[in-house]
């Protein structure tokens, strides 16, 4: 796996313009526009999917399905209403969550595979936090949260963990976990606004 420095999302307006145009192209039925999205964002998409799903084959499946969905839903993206990248990654994250929450899918994994997958997901959550750039406001705002609250939010967003899984990982009752996350997200919004 090749690691490259994470560019700040607000630092590349060109990429945003390109992606906005590409989504409009997809909505108009231009396959070259979808190809551009794959070429420009496919590597990061694989990285996001692999953090949640660990296995390369599942990650590839998720990215492939996500791009087909992006093609079909592209007209739902409205230029100027938020970052095109955030929209594209949201489609991908949904697809990954569907795979994770589909019990039948994961029940086909051997127990060792499943354990390796869970370990890798946990590790990638920590790595994601470490790689969040110091100049990103989100980092400062996450940093002031109580560590278990911050960790719970990262487990959900980066690792795709559910409330129940997070409560189990942190050895707290489900209700406690839910209220940590809710209060943490409220504080995050306040801090970023």
């Amino acid at each position: 796996m090749t690691l490259s420095p994470a560019p700040r999302p607000d630092a590349d307006d060109h990429a945003t313009d390109d992606l906005t145009a590409a989504l409009a192209g997809c909505a108009a039925g231009d396959q070259a526009a979808l190809r551009l999205i794959l070429d420009q964002e496919g590597g990061r998409m694989l990285g996001i999917a692999q953090r949640m799903l660990h296995r390369r084959d599942l990650a590839e499946e998720a990215v492939q399905d996500a791009l087909v969905q992006i093609w079909r839903k592209a007209q739902q993206f409205r230029a100027g209403e938020g970052a095109p990248r955030a929209w594209i990654f949201a489609v991908l994250r949904n697809r990954c969550l569907n795979i994770l929450r589909d019990g039948k899918r994961l029940s086909t994994l051997a127990p060792d595979d499943l354990t390796a997958m869970q370990d890798a997901r946990l590790q990638s959550v920590g790595a994601g936090w470490d790689r969040l750039g110091d100049k990103v406001a989100l980092k400062d705002c996450l940093a002031v949260l109580e560590p278990p609250t911050r960790h719970a939010i990262l487990l959900a967003y980066i690792g795709g963990y559910s409330h129940g899984e997070i409560a189990a990982l942190q050895s707290v009752p489900l209700g406690t976990c839910k209220s940590w996350i809710r209060r943490g997200l409220d504080a995050l919004r306040g801090c970023l606004s």
Partner: peptide, 12 residues
Amino acid sequence: RLLPLDMTAAVV
């Protein structure tokens, strides 16, 4: 708001 977390994923 949460997009910067996606950007911490490796480019594979």
